[in-house]
Amino acid sequence: QVATSTVRILGMTCQSCVKSIEDRISNLKGIISMKVSLEQGSATVKYVPSVVCLQQVCHQIGDMGFEASIAE
């Protein structure tokens, strides 16, 4: 089973930030795809909930120095 959710990301300033986040999160087990939008300050994450949760994704992004939260 696959889920798609949006994560809000604060602190991104350039495409390099976007690429860094996409590269790191895409390597997590259970992540199918991730598309980060600098303009919208968010990311669309396609993932397998039984393998990885959005809290883990937000935590990983937080470790990179950005502020991440699950969009309502």
Rank of each mutant, 00 (worst) to 15 (best):
Gln1Trp: 12
Ser5Asp: 09
Thr6Lys: 11
Gln1Cys: 15
Ile32Glu: 02
Cys53Gly: 10
Ser5Gly: 15
Ser26Thr: 11
Ile32Ser: 00
Cys17Thr: 04
Gln55Lys: 13
Val7Ala: 01
Val51Trp: 06
Lys35Thr: 11
Val45Arg: 01
Gly11Met: 05
Leu10His: 12
Val18Met: 05
Ser20His: 07
Glu72Thr: 12
Ala68Phe: 06
Ala71Ile: 15
Tyr47Leu: 03
Val18Leu: 05
Gly41His: 14
Cys58Trp: 07
Glu67Tyr: 12
Ser50Trp: 08
Glu39Lys: 08
Asp23Ser: 13
Val45Ala: 02
Glu67Lys: 14
Gln56Leu: 09
Ser20Gln: 15
Val7Gly: 02
Ser16Tyr: 06
Ser33Lys: 09
Ala71Thr: 10
Lys29Thr: 10
Ile61Phe: 04
Gly11Asp: 02
Gly11Cys: 05
Val48Leu: 13
Val7Cys: 14
Ser50Phe: 08
Ala68Thr: 09
Lys19Cys: 04
Met12Lys: 03
Val7Asp: 04
Thr4Pro: 02
Glu67Leu: 11
Ser20Asp: 14
Met64Ala: 05
Val48Asn: 14
Cys58Arg: 10
Val48Gly: 02
Thr13Asn: 05
Glu39Met: 11
Thr4Asn: 06
Glu39Gly: 07
Val7Met: 12
Ala71Val: 14
Met64Trp: 03
Thr44His: 08
Gln55Glu: 12
Gly65Phe: 05
Val45Pro: 00
Ala43Ile: 06
Ser50Lys: 09
Tyr47His: 02
Val45Thr: 00
Gln1Ala: 09
Ile31Ser: 01
Asn27Gln: 13
Lys29Asp: 12
Val2Thr: 12
Ser33Trp: 09
Leu10Thr: 14
Gly41Ala: 14
Ser20Pro: 03
Arg24Ala: 11
Val36Pro: 00
Glu22Arg: 04
Val51Met: 14
Ile31His: 03
Thr44Leu: 13
Ser37Asp: 11
Gln55Pro: 06
Ile31Pro: 00
Ser42Arg: 11
Ile9Met: 00
Ser16Gln: 11
Cys17Phe: 04
Ser5Val: 12
Asn27Arg: 14
Ala3Gln: 10
Val45Asn: 01
Phe66Gly: 01
Gly65Glu: 03
Ser69Gly: 06
Gln15Ala: 11
Arg8Tyr: 14
Val52Lys: 03
Val57Phe: 03
Asn27Phe: 08
Ala43Lys: 01
Gly65Pro: 01
Ser42Met: 15
Thr13Lys: 12
Gln60Val: 15
Leu10Pro: 04
Val36Ala: 05
Val18Gly: 06
Ser33Val: 04
Pro49Tyr: 06
Val36Glu: 00
Gly62Val: 14
Arg24Leu: 06
Asp23Cys: 06
Met34Asp: 00
Phe66Trp: 05
Ile31Val: 14
Lys29Arg: 13
Gly11Gln: 04
Cys14Trp: 04
Ser42Leu: 15
Gly41Glu: 14
Gly62Asp: 14
Cys58Tyr: 09
Val51Thr: 05
Leu38Arg: 05
Asp63Glu: 15
Glu39Thr: 11
Val45Gly: 02
Val36Asn: 00
Val57Glu: 03
Met64Lys: 03
Val48Trp: 12
Gln55Ser: 11
Val48Ile: 14
Thr13Asp: 05
Gly65Asp: 02
Val51Cys: 04
Leu28Ile: 14
Ile61Leu: 10
Val52His: 02
Met64Pro: 03
Val52Ile: 14
Leu10Gly: 10
Leu54Pro: 07
Glu72Met: 09
Ile70Thr: 07
Ala43Trp: 04
Lys29Ser: 12
Ser16Arg: 12
Val2Pro: 07
Ile32Thr: 02
Val52Asn: 01
Gln15Val: 10
Ala71Glu: 12
Ser26Arg: 10
Thr13Phe: 15
Gln55Thr: 09
Asp63Trp: 09
Ile70Pro: 09
Ile9Trp: 04
Ser50Pro: 03
Gln15Met: 13
Asp23Phe: 09
Ser37Ala: 06
